[in-house]
Simulated assay, not measured.
Amino acid sequence: MPHIDYFFATLSPYAYLAGQRLEEIADKHGATITYKPLDIIALFGRTGGTPPKDRHPSRQEYRAQELKRQAAKAEKPFNLQPMHWPTNMAPSSYAIIAAQKAGGGDLGALTHSFMRACWAEEKNIADDEVVRACLSAAGFDPSLADSGLLVGAEEYAANLEEAVNRGVFGAPFYVTDTDQRFWGQDRLADLDAHLSGNL
């Protein structure tokens, strides 16, 4: 059974625009997924990247154009300048980690709900009520927002170290159990083809 390690940040616009295509691809191929939320700004600092606000204006302008195009292609509502961006990614990330350990809900839906809350719904994913609502809507116990704090913090930091050690440098980033790496939501078709044995 193939496996995919999914490295992402809950504030990543490109991870939001991926929707739940990863989950669809995994279902198609009988693959399992481990969700590995991480601090994308820290990852940039460790792997030679630059946070969006520090990039050259030409790169910022291109990013703005490309995000609008990708949102149109994905047919997703998208606010280029959401009210609560950037914000603290830790609470939503800890909730995902706790939910993954607890089981019983739809982890893909939970992950996407945080991103949708930021990029389409003008919600602050660092807010406790938003975190609880996302957990509940995805079929998880909303109290995971509290109970998973300690383990979540440790695993969140460990995900960053693992990402650096495994050649991950952006988000979303998909790594197969054969160490094939796919960066970006626009590489999901390639991941699908790889799992089909065609790439």
Rank of each mutant, 00 (worst) to 15 (best):
F8R: 07
T10I: 02
L11F: 08
L11I: 07
S12P: 12
S12G: 07
P13A: 04
P13R: 04
Y14V: 06
Y14M: 13
A15M: 04
A15C: 11
Y16W: 14
L17H: 14
L17W: 14
L17R: 15
A18R: 05
Q20D: 11
L22Y: 09
L22I: 05
E23G: 09
E23R: 07
E23F: 07
D27V: 04
D27W: 03
G30P: 07
T32Y: 07
T32D: 13
T32A: 15
I33R: 11
T34K: 15
K36L: 05
K36N: 15
K36F: 11
P37H: 01
L38W: 02
D39H: 07
D39V: 01
I40L: 15
I41R: 14
A42V: 06
A42S: 13
F44W: 13
G45S: 10
R46K: 15
T47H: 11
G48Q: 05
G48L: 07
G49K: 12
T50D: 04
T50A: 09
T50P: 15
K53C: 03
R55V: 05
R55E: 10
R55P: 11
P57F: 03
S58F: 14
S58H: 12
R59P: 14
R59H: 11
R59G: 06
Q60L: 08
Q60F: 09
Q60M: 10
E61Q: 14
R63Y: 09
R63S: 08
R63M: 12
R63E: 00
R63F: 12
A64F: 10
Q65F: 15
E66K: 13
E66D: 14
L67D: 02
R69Y: 10
A71F: 11
A72E: 14
A72R: 13
K73F: 13
K76S: 10
K76Y: 09
K76E: 05
P77G: 00
P77E: 00
N79L: 04
Q81M: 03
Q81V: 02
P82Y: 01
P82I: 01
P82R: 03
M83D: 08
M83F: 08
M83C: 05
P86Q: 01
T87I: 02
M89T: 04
A90T: 03
P91H: 05
S92H: 07
S92K: 05
S93I: 02
S93G: 06
S93Y: 03
S93V: 02
Y94V: 06
I96A: 09
I96P: 10
A99T: 04
A102L: 08
A102C: 09
G104Q: 06
G104M: 00
G105E: 07
G105K: 05
G105W: 08
G105I: 05
D106P: 10
D106Q: 01
A109R: 12
L110P: 10
T111Q: 14
H112L: 06
F114I: 03
F114Y: 06
R116E: 11
R116A: 09
R116T: 06
A117Q: 00
C118E: 08
W119A: 04
E121M: 13
E121F: 11
I125N: 03
I125M: 01
I125H: 08
D127L: 04
E129S: 14
E129T: 05
E129N: 08
V130I: 05
